[in-house]
Design a protein around this nucleic acid. Sequence first.
DNA 1: CGATTATTGATAGTAATACTATTATATTTG
DNA 2: CAAATATAATAGTATTACTATCAATAATCG
Lengths: 224, 224
Amino acid sequence: MATLAFKLNEHLYLRDPQHTQLGQNIIQKSVEMIDRLGFEQFTFKKLAEEINSTEASIYRYFENKHKLLVYLISWYWHWIEYRIDIASGSLQNPSEKLRACLRVLADEKKFDAGFEFVNEEALHRIVVAELDKTYQTKGVDDYNKEGLFGGFKSVCRKITTVILEVNPSYPYAASLVSTILVSSNQQLFFSEHLPSLTTIGTGQERYTQLYKFMENIVFKSIQS
Amino acid sequence: MATLAFKLNEHLYLRDPQHTQLGQNIIQKSVEMIDRLGFEQFTFKKLAEEINSTEASIYRYFENKHKLLVYLISWYWHWIEYRIDIASGSLQNPSEKLRACLRVLADEKKFDAGFEFVNEEALHRIVVAELDKTYQTKGVDDYNKEGLFGGFKSVCRKITTVILEVNPSYPYAASLVSTILVSSNQQLFFSEHLPSLTTIGTGQERYTQLYKFMENIVFKSIQS
DNA sequence: CGATTATTGATAGTAATACTATTATATTTG
DNA sequence: CAAATATAATAGTATTACTATCAATAATCG
């Protein structure tokens, strides 16, 4: 299988990690470590040890660990968009397209062989556990000016467009979409850690339950 | 007006800050500072300087700054529940009760004279900007065992109950409520920092827009 | 192929953060 | 008033999040 790569915003990194061995090691191992340790406990020093490199070398790729997190999660949203395109590309019916989008969002994330050095399963757990940290920061406006949230926005825009195809007069499309994009991950988080806040369970059927919840909320909200 | 106080979970603090002058100074000034600096830039050292006390003294009240944040946001949810009780207490009709809940959530937060040393306007901005940091941490399960999320859960439970009064067979009540609790704050955040993700504007009418969005999502979702 | 250039590693250092410990001084309470 | 408690003052530590310098190695280019 051909190895694909996404063109991510240049301000996310100092040197493109997809182009070098060290860069790929940083991506691969940081996904594993942030998943395991959590973002707060993760440091460039620990990462350097694990990939047999140095802190200084990692700093040549990423300004700081927060930008690395934003990079990884941006990568995730590009990947989601790519999967949405595959899943909905051939569909004509707007409602069917919308259902396809929701299915991509709610689906269990499995390793995608198209992207060798990214473990999508672990990355999705990072998104579930850390997503909000990408924008809940005083630097959000600067980040936004640099276009660092382009991946997320692009997915949001795409699904918003589909919703407006289903019902052109629905007035809250963007808000509904950003709500479910965040909620689809948050509900999985709650199901694991704060189960009284959700109706999603912890078994294998959780992804089906999540899908049904999202389908209910979206289709009922937009019906005129 | 009588000064009220909420009985917050004991594990949130080492010494109850509501009972002493220093404690009240900590609460009052930390709200102002976290609002101004953001949670990451806020430190106990800076806080100590502003209230003419010492770092060590603050550590006698709170284990660390994260628990202080959890304390403040827990206080916020207790306050919301108190306002929901006032607003919905006299209502009989379940749909009207639900609307009253949503109104409390979507309303602009103004200073509540019942609680002298808490600036609810600033505290609400903190909730909008930092809410997810309270639970998006590796320590979430320990925190939860200690009951530190009791305020949030209690509000969630209360509104869930009202939803089930409106439609006893709606299967996603808890998920819908936790989704809108988070979303009601997130949409305000987006309207300020990432406006393409929301239909909410930045003017005075934003709270009305937020309410309408929430009413739409909730009532349409639960209708059978 | 040899010279230049870019990349990485090794090492060191700094300011700030998130605490902990100790002791002295107030302040409250019984 | 004595005893207990709360606070202030001060000091100290380990870790974090970087920055700087220079040597070694690898890639590339004329």
